[in-house]
Simulated assay, not measured.
Amino acid sequence: MSAPIVIAGAGIGGLTAALAVAQAGRRVHLIERAAKIEEVGAGFQIAPNAGRALARLGLEEALAAVALEPQGINVRRGRDGAVLARLDVSDVRAQWGAPFRVFHRADLQQVLLQAALGHPQIEIRTGTRLGEFEDRDGVIRLRAHGPEGVEEIVAAGLVGADGQRSAVRAHLLPTERDAPVYSGRTAWRALIPTELAPPELRARESHLWLLPGAHVVHYPLRDGSIINVVVIVSEPPRHTEGAAILALDGPELARHLRRQQPAEMLAALIEAGASFRHWPLFARPPLKRWSRGGVTLLGDAAHPMMPFLAQGAAQAIEDAEALGLAFRQLGASVERTFAAYEAKRIGRAAKIVRASWRQGEYFHLSGLAASARDLTIRALGGRGMLARNAWLYR
């Protein structure tokens, strides 16, 4: 029996990669440090580029059962609630082959997990931490620290899908200069029962509010029963220290935003939140290479990005599909497969990392620059805004 491909990390990227590699005919051992595979966090968006990839893995029916498809995206001026542009996304499937969808993270992860558990080529080990490993003569020898002790695994290749603070990346790049760096922005996240939201914000649509030094994104989940709210603010580094407040209730967060003067309707939505969790946003230096021999990186381990284009999970899914395709074409040599995968993905991922960072700067403008931005958005309109981002979705 051939040696497996070991994938470290059972998040969205790791599970999708396991499915893609297994469908390409390779055995996969997926190892996850947590004792139980369950997603933390709240909602997130899957744009058409990632939706197509998931559908090609045979997941369309399962995705439709747990997703919500917003009918529009409203870009609003944050201080008075004026709609600068409305993006009609009700018919983008015809244009880009998949809809815009929003998910509770746990729901999408369970779809992927159930598909992986049902695949005969995939073995999943939870409560298992990746230890030391070495790549010698085309064979990966690694130690897996599990509930029953340390196990030696001989693998054909290792994929680090273990997140922004990747242990695999740390092994490949053991330098302090590669450490995560606070971006200067923090996300505050909460799920709010829809009946507590202002009536004007209960429709099956997404909203983006632009404020000086901040922005807010919210959209409905789980058949419209809850609303995922994310408030992103520019904050000094002290907010990332261990003594920082880890949660605020809605009224406290609304007071925290008073300087930005949010519209009454937006403030009311935030005040309805029972608890907003504090998520500092970190960046890492871009990599010139993701792979070395029989070891490669995927998703946030390779290219962590700011969430301002809603492409973090989408790019991990694109990585996974590209990895599976490379195995179909070049599967006899893992080193060549990883090199081809990297060559296919590294340029596009780096471009989206840069664009996501710029988008955050654009969202947080103030004064005359913000007024000029708002005029530009009005001039573009919904169709123009979609066209401007078509390079992401097609």
Rank of each mutant, 00 (worst) to 15 (best):
L63K: 00
I140K: 00
G160L: 02
W96G: 02
A62D: 10
A116F: 08
S166K: 09
G118A: 12
A85Q: 08
I122M: 05
L68W: 00
W96M: 04
L84T: 07
R136D: 10
D80P: 14
N74I: 00
G131N: 04
R86Q: 14
G157T: 10
E152P: 00
W96R: 09
F103A: 14
R165Y: 02
G97H: 08
F100H: 13
L142T: 00
V150L: 08
G127V: 06
P120L: 04
I140W: 01
L87N: 02
E132V: 02
R86A: 15
V102H: 12
I153M: 03
E148T: 15
A94L: 11
G58E: 03
E132D: 13
R105H: 07
I73D: 03
S166E: 03
S166Q: 07
A161R: 03
R93Q: 12
E132Y: 01
R143A: 15
E151L: 09
L108F: 09
V66N: 05
V89S: 11
S90G: 14
E132W: 01
V83D: 11
I122H: 10
P120Y: 04
G72R: 15
A116Q: 09
V92N: 04
A106P: 07
V89E: 02
L68T: 15
T126Q: 07
E151F: 03
A144I: 00
L108E: 06
R136P: 02
L108W: 04
A94P: 01
A62H: 04
R141S: 13
T126I: 02
H104N: 10
A53H: 00
E69P: 01
A115G: 07
A85H: 08
A67G: 12
F100M: 11
A116G: 06
A82P: 00
R76H: 14
G72L: 07
G81M: 06
S166A: 08
A65C: 06
L112A: 11
G81N: 13
H145K: 06
A53N: 01
Q109R: 15
F100K: 06
R79G: 14
P99M: 08
G58T: 05
H145G: 02
S90Y: 07
E123Y: 00
V66D: 03
A82N: 04
L57I: 07
F133I: 01
R56V: 06
L63R: 05
A85I: 09
R93A: 15
N49G: 11
H104Y: 09
A50Y: 05
D80S: 13
E61K: 14
V66G: 09
I122E: 04
E123R: 15
L59P: 01
Q114M: 09
D88H: 10
R77H: 15
F100L: 15
G138I: 05
F103P: 10
R79I: 09
G163L: 08
D91I: 00
I73T: 12
Q110W: 04
G127H: 01
A106R: 15
R136M: 01
H145Q: 13
E152R: 14
A85S: 12
L87Y: 06
A53K: 00
A155H: 04
D162I: 04
Q114K: 12
R93I: 05
V89R: 08
R56W: 01
G146W: 04
R125C: 10
